[in-house]
Design a protein around this nucleic acid. Structure first.
Lengths: 340, 340
DNA sequence: ACGACCTTATAAAACGATTTTCATCGTAAA
DNA sequence: TTTACGATGAAAATCGTTTTATAAGGTCGT
């Protein structure tokens, strides 16, 4: 047996490969990348040397030279996200999973930047060539800074007509689908429960709700609840309505934690779902599915959205374009919180 | 208005900062990293220069010099994963989300390496200092290669008594919890449906099942189904049992896609759950929750597992240790597929 | 036989940080 | 007064790759 060297052997570099194959480092580089023609024969020798020595390229060095890291980041701002419940995280993860696959098909890795305080610090301690940003607010500071630094970005959940590269999600259509479904089931007294941030989703749901209720000749009632206290806030709002004797036979709570709060309140008040009150929410995630009864919601087709966004981002990184892409239409998923 | 420079300005480097602050690059580096003492006064000038110039360190360059990328990867082998249903992906994502947070608390980013074909290629096109590997098979080749290259790894879902750094998950306890719960609800004729890979989970469930059924004086019946065709395979197995007239009042299907297949088969055969047959599965994910009725399963406490594993991995990266850590005990989550 | 031109490979110059080695200047200890 | 030492910076070496400029042969048409 050979005497094992204890200290880690010096890393095998392109220089070692070069000398083993009897060529220069530059040639090895060209053979690997295929950026310039290399003779069949020499290439074969190089390949053999790589195998024998077990050469693994140093990606940091490559990255430094080329200025590319072959990495894209996915990020969701909103520090209250985690507090606001699993919804946001689930959303982020659904996007991340799909994006990771698409990215890897283009030989890019996906890095996850979780929504924490000091997001800006996080964003500058992680290397990436481009960023997927999930439903930022109108004036997101991180987004602005990155764009200013010339880093390609792609917004997931771009409002129709908003500027900047991204994938649109049709918020208006989402609201329409849910509201018209509720109305069709015979609901007449249906408050809307919203978060208070300036997020796209909140704005559009409010607008559409008010328009459609007016059209149907019904009274509108909007509760705004701070995202940080979503569940309890929603619950309190509903209980208050009931205590005040306001009629209620439906609730639209786009944020799933608020839908959960609503369900709790209804249970507490002894109202049955969907018998007395019908309830619907937006994101068809964990919470929507594991309520009793499970909640009618939307299939946002996040896998497709993420795939489109990722492909677009990679295009932007490579060719510099910065397109606005159209996401798929949401689909209604009817569950027993509104029928039966 | 100043005339905007069209071509991107040359990147601001440590040299620019140095000359602006009237010091040498090395001093700037020391000021930033804090690795050596720098005078209060000079440090202040440097900080100011950084702010003014908008200096952002080039992480690739730093990485090349230090040999660290401040990145850890999470990876799940098993190419059939995605085909086998959402379970595996959900599992991966749950771990990833928690790991990402823990990692970022240590100033590390988390990169996602999705379970694709050519995993080995993927693993060498992404830079990382350490790897979290989810439930590898006994003899995972990727794992071996990475360890040989001296890259710290941490297995999530290490069998009790197995070698190598990782976090244990108590598979035997999982099986015991589910089986004893089923037996307590009065089940007497309960087949076990397993995947055919050599994964820890499969081995332990079989062992424990056979032991406990024997102890209870009950007949054991094991169906092995290929992971790639989990849902239909499980469904076929159950229907076959029923057609053969074998008694059945319970099913244990640890893999959730197989549990779903089981539910479909029972519906098709006109058997009610939990009235006629009680069903339980292992991972309390999407599928378990959105079955009708929702399935009794286990809370594997993946967030805690991931956090422990990530902290351990970072420790290994920084200090070289390679511990075997004990994961939290699973908890039974009783749902209406076994009671009521 | 002579440029013109193509193919292939080499040498050397980046890329942008960190780390190591040396100076320099005070100041405390002997 | 001398020596030693601590504190602070500068200069230069270094990490491993890619890219650029350059050279060495070969082929071809005239």
């Amino acid at each position: 047996m050979e005497d094992q060297v204890r200290r880690p052997r010096r890393r095998v570099t392109v220089v070692d490969v070069a000398s083993a194959a009897g060529v220069s480092p530059g040639t090895v580089s060209n053979a690997i990348s295929g950026k310039r023609k290399v003779d069949q024969d020499t290439r074969a020798r190089i390949d053999r040397a790589i195998l024998e020595l077990g050469y693994v390229p140093n990606l940091a060095a490559r990255g430094m030279r080329t200025g590319r890291t072959n990495t894209i980041a996915v990020f969701s701002s909103m520090p209250t996200a985690v507090a606001a419940g699993s919804a946001r995280l689930g959303f982020l993860m659904e996007v991340a999973a799909s994006a990771a696959v698409t990215a890897l098909e283009h030989n890019m890795a996906l890095v996850l930047v979780p929504p924490i305080r000091e997001a800006s610090k996080a964003l500058s301690s992680v290397p990436f060539d481009g960023l997927l940003m999930i439903e930022p607010e109108e004036d997101d500071a991180n987004l602005a800074r990155l764009r200013q630094r010339g880093i390609p970005t792609m917004v997931i959940g771009l409002r129709d007509g908003a500027p900047g590269p991204g994938v649109t999600m049709n918020f208006q259509r989402m609201a329409e689908l849910l509201i018209s479904h509720l109305l069709e089931t015979g609901v007449r007294h249906m408050p809307l429960i919203l978060g208070q941030s300036t997020r796209q989703s909140n704005l559009f749901f409010r607008q559409t709700y008010e328009r459609m209720m007016a059209q149907a000749g019904l009274a509108a009632r909007v509760h705004v609840v701070p995202e940080a206290d979503a569940e309890r806030g929603a619950s309190a709002a509903i209980l208050q309505d009931i205590a005040a004797g306001l009629p209620i036979d439906g609730v639209l709570a786009p944020i799933d934690a608020m839908a959960a709060g609503t369900m709790a309140a209804l249970r507490q008040a002894g109202l049955s779902v969907p018998g007395d009150v019908k309830v619907a929410t937006r994101y068809d995630g964990f919470r929507a599915r594991s309520e009793t009864p499970p909640l009618t919601a939307l299939n946002l087709r996040l896998d497709e959205v993420a795939q489109i966004a990722t492909a677009g981002l990679i295009g932007a990184i490579e060719t510099g374009g910065a397109p606005i892409l159209t996401g798929p239409e949401p689909r209604l998923v009817v569950r027993s919180s509104t029928v039966g």
